[in-house]
Simulated scan of single mutants.
Amino acid sequence: MADFLPRSPLSLAPRGLPSRRMAYASPFIALALTLAFGALLFLLLGKDPVAALKVFLIDPLKDRRAIGEVLLKTVPLVLCALGLSVCYRANIWNIGADGQLIVGGIFAGATVLYFDVPGHGVNGTVVLVLASLAGVAGGMFWASLTAALKDKFNANEILVSLMLTYIAQQLMLYVVNGPLKDPNGMNFPQSKVFSSEFLLPNLMSGSRLHAGFVVMLVLVVLMTVFIFRSFAGYRLQVGGTAPAAARYAGFSARRSLWSALMISGGTAGLAGAFEVTGPIGQLLPSISPGYGFTAIIVAFVGRLHPVGTVFGGIVMSLFYIGGEMAQSRLGLPSALGSVFQGMLLFFLLASDTLIDNRLRWRAKAA
């Protein structure tokens, strides 16, 4: 099944400077093709392509509040993509970041609700830290189920992590209809709205962009150091790109499996914690519109590089918000954003495959 996923940019060969340049050019080629075919799609739908692309890509950045919304959506996308990048570099195909995000949100929301009672006497900042740590623990716990089944029974991590996502969705439905349901919520499946002191502080006035964005940027730096400047990161990458060499060097495949999935689950769980203590402010069945799945595209658009995921996250965030604006202003289906995401993934896969084949052909000819 991994054959149907995007080819890792780490697999492009030969390992020379031209191949690296072509690998990093692939996302820009894919983005250009996506916009070209997107313009054609607008034309077929009877819309002015230039005006439609303006609504889709330019209007979401027209003012301070709009920019804040774009950056807000990059937080869960980039956090999930950071962990997925580590997994994919280690050749571990975690597809369940969305489920790990949801369980992280449940753990974080339950923590806030435990303290959000009259006379709690606990500082709001302390509760937010505890909720964030609980979110990380929840995501790691959910990822550990995949790691355990892979480790003990050699179960396919793609199928296991994907199926666990649907179980996580049902778990969310259970808690918001059961133990964490708002008794005064008119029977809606939701928890009570968190008190303002237990919500992440905003970074910009007039915008919903919260302090989680700063944490995300710090994690991008830390993950870059981990991957490229630490022995543990080197060990993970060797295990992913050269398993035989890793075994010869005595690197533990089991340790790499658990490390990669724990990191991935932790960052996804943190994304869930930031969603429930940030823009949502409560537990809802729909805390994620598929951020964990979209983060797969973000990771590969960013070439599995932490800094690159920020670029990929901004692009995907534009597609999310652009799709909503195209629906309200142009009367187009709300699924248009997903169509653009799918086209970007398709063209990215095609570009990587063509570049890979061209490099192999040149290597043989030489």
Rank of each mutant, 00 (worst) to 15 (best):
V129E: 08
S191F: 05
M172W: 00
L130D: 05
L149E: 06
K150R: 15
L164A: 01
M172S: 02
A134N: 01
L162V: 06
G124W: 02
L164V: 01
T165P: 00
A137R: 06
M186I: 09
M163S: 05
V129R: 07
N202G: 13
V122E: 04
Y114A: 07
L164I: 02
L200S: 08
S207M: 11
A168C: 04
L222Y: 05
P189G: 10
Y234F: 15
V175S: 10
A134R: 00
K150A: 14
G135L: 04
L162F: 04
N184D: 15
L236W: 05
V225W: 09
L180V: 12
I158L: 11
N156E: 14
V160T: 11
R208L: 14
V175T: 09
G233A: 08
V175P: 03
L199C: 08
L173D: 04
S144C: 11
K181G: 12
G178A: 14
F213A: 07
S191L: 10
L217I: 11
L133Q: 09
L173Q: 10
H120E: 04
M186L: 15
L164R: 02
K152V: 12
V220M: 04
V126D: 06
R235Q: 13
A168D: 00
H120C: 03
S132Q: 02
M204V: 15
S230L: 10
Q190L: 07
G124Y: 00
S205N: 15
A131C: 04
V193N: 14
G139T: 03
G119C: 07
N187P: 08
D182L: 08
S207I: 10
Y114T: 07
A131T: 02
P201E: 10
G239S: 15
L171P: 05
V122D: 03
G233W: 01
G135C: 08
L180N: 06
L113W: 01
L173C: 03
A147Y: 00
F115Y: 08
F231I: 13
V215Y: 13
Y166D: 09
Y114M: 06
T224E: 12
I167N: 02
V193H: 15
R229W: 06
F115R: 02
V126M: 09
V160G: 04
S205T: 13
I158M: 14
F194L: 05
T165Y: 01
F115W: 04
E157S: 02
M186E: 12
V238N: 12
S132L: 03
V225R: 07
G178L: 14
S191V: 06
L149H: 05
L113Q: 07
R235P: 03
F228H: 15
V220F: 05
I227Y: 04
S132G: 11
F226H: 02
A137W: 00
V220S: 06
S191N: 11
V127R: 00
L200P: 02
V214P: 09
A143G: 10
V175I: 13
F198A: 03
G212Q: 14
L133F: 10
L130Q: 04
V127H: 00
F141K: 10
T224C: 11
V220Y: 02
A147H: 11
A232I: 10
K181D: 05
L173I: 06
Q169Y: 08
S205I: 13
F198R: 01
L217K: 14
F153R: 15
P118K: 14
K192L: 13
A131D: 00
F141M: 14
T165Q: 03
P189A: 12
Q170T: 06
